[in-house]
Computed example of a mutant assay.
Amino acid sequence: MVTVRGLSVSFGGRTVLEDIDLTVGAGEIVTLIGPNGAGKTTLVKSVLGLVKPSAGSIRLRPGLTVGYMPQRLQVERTLPLTVRRFLTLWRKVGRAELSQVLDEVGAAHVIDDAVQTLSGGELQRVLLARALLRRPDILVLDEPVQAVDVHGQIELFNLIAEIRRTRGCGVLLVSHDLHLVMARTDTVVCVNRHICCSGHPEDVSRHPEYLAMFGRHAEALAVYQHSHDHHHDCGGAVVTLPSAPQPLPDAQAREHPARHHHHG
């Protein structure tokens, strides 16, 4: 449904993304992971047509409908905006369809509540409902579990997997870490300006690089095991290593031919 080839994006002479290849198929969940500032949201915005690439191509299947769940929503606290009104601002929605989609995401009970009074988990479900109202072929979800506790994260990831199953839509999911979503992901793409590696998610483990990034909190998170053969210095520049680790078998991962790994 989505094919990205050789994508590069620069802002003011600074390269944010370089030579990105990405595909998302029907019914597939693809997760972009990487540290803050790695370019994940820029990649998503490029796919959505909100950011113009400096090089490369983005091809969407003709007639493709995209449901987008943004990373943040800011609503003026004094604005009288109920969930019902919020979900019908952009298009006319019948009462039955509105009730059905809110029930699907587990948020039927907040339909007449003010958006500003919702908990983090309730707001994320309402944003997901808004994306589903487009009857999408592909869902693009940017950090869908922020401001949600661990129990709520598990429920949201299970909900996303169920929506993929029942609707048959593809999912492009962005996360700054791995979290429990990895158990529901078909393909993982590790991004830090370029693609470091990509492949199938692995079982929960204690990967040294992941522990270095997330410390003691990493023990509670599911991990995609992968080998990096390069690193980045604190400024993001690639640092070449004298030798590269052996790649995982093809059945487990697809390694990119870079000779560097991530540092700091």
Rank of each mutant, 00 (worst) to 15 (best):
I160H: 00
D177S: 14
Q100I: 03
I58L: 14
G63Q: 06
V30H: 06
I138R: 02
A129N: 01
A218V: 08
L7W: 02
V66P: 01
F11T: 04
L22M: 09
G6W: 01
D112M: 02
L89T: 10
P144N: 01
R134V: 13
M1Y: 13
L248Q: 08
Y210P: 02
A258G: 12
A108S: 14
H207E: 10
L7Q: 06
P62S: 10
K45A: 02
V171M: 05
P245N: 05
G49W: 09
I33V: 14
L141P: 00
S54A: 15
Q153C: 14
N192R: 06
A161T: 05
L118R: 05
A107R: 00
N36T: 13
S205R: 09
V115R: 00
H151P: 03
D203W: 07
T88F: 02
A218C: 07
H260N: 08
T41Q: 02
P245K: 12
R184Y: 12
E143R: 07
D186T: 03
G106D: 09
T78A: 11
C234T: 14
A55D: 10
H256M: 09
A55V: 04
A251R: 13
C190H: 06
Q146L: 09
S99L: 04
R216I: 08
T185Y: 00
A220E: 12
T240C: 11
